[in-house]
Design a protein around this nucleic acid. Structure first.
Lengths: 143, 143
DNA sequence: CTACATGCAAATCCTTTGCATCCAC
DNA sequence: GTGGATGCAAAGGATTTGCATGTAG
């Protein structure tokens, strides 16, 4: 888990304006450690006494994303989620059947990255990618 | 390019009901060869004299997807696209800067598939995946 | 004939925008 | 003080749903 303070001070050094709403979003994302949808964020914030409008949550996660503090991942059917960018970058295995999301370490992407660079001169930004398929449990009871 | 007839007869053998609307969507997807959005489909169908409602197009591509005849790919900012599933499976490199979409052959995914199966007991369905990053041209003129 | 697909309209969900007000610096 | 952020309401786009009608088998 990442310290919200670290993110806050980095942003302040960059001359960003830090409102209580922005601090609250950063703290919630850090405290959770998990990936959260905009709705998740709004609910958790409201529960702890900081009621933000959806609009504001959208604006703040966009702002954090633009400044490289959070990553955005589209989990397809499971919606769009946000998480603080930590050194232990990872990806997501999303089960098409049960919807379970399992994290996988980043290095599984290294071979693919290398190949796309070499063969296609393409510089991939493979951050928190979602890979769909069948999880351990669901593949057992199916085709 | 895949013959629409092949898809139609396979579906008929499975006891599916083949309306003129369904045939038209299959034919348009096959004729195009490219990936099409629901809007693209509707426009092209209307142009050739088969006006379908958006609702119907949505229902038909969903139906085709459920029966394994087409793949659905979320290209992020560029929308959700559909294409017939052919033997020459491929994926998409989407440039974050210029939006260009380049196809890449399926085998670049083999190593990743193998690893997810072996290390995570996860059976990936990596069909027409979208990988974001910077294309050859845009990476040159940037960081 | 009959079950199922379509068309139409309206609802829903997610996200963005315009504008007045508010607050961090 | 002032520029930029927030709240509110409303717009926007993509997708889904309910129901009457049409049609493939």
């Amino acid at each position: 888990m990442i310290c919200a303070e670290a993110i806050v001070s980095r942003l302040r050094e960059q001359g960003e304006r830090l409102t209580i709403q922005r601090r609250a979003v950063i703290e919630t994302l850090c405290a959770s450690g998990d990936h959260l949808t905009v709705q998740d964020l709004q609910t958790q914030l409201a529960a702890q006494g900081t009621a933000l409008t959806e609009t504001t949550v959208y604006r703040i996660v966009q702002w954090l994303k633009d400044r490289g503090a959070v990553a955005q991942t589209d989990l397809g059917q499971s919606g769009v989620v946000y998480q603080v960018i930590d050194r232990t970058l990872h990806h997501h295995l999303v089960c098409l059947r049960c919807g379970r999301v399992v994290d996988v370490e980043d290095c599984v992407m290294d071979a693919l990255r290398e190949r796309l660079r070499r063969e296609y001169a393409f510089e991939p930004r493979i951050d928190h990618m979602a890979i769909f398929g069948l999880c351990r449990d669901c593949r057992a009871g199916h085709d």
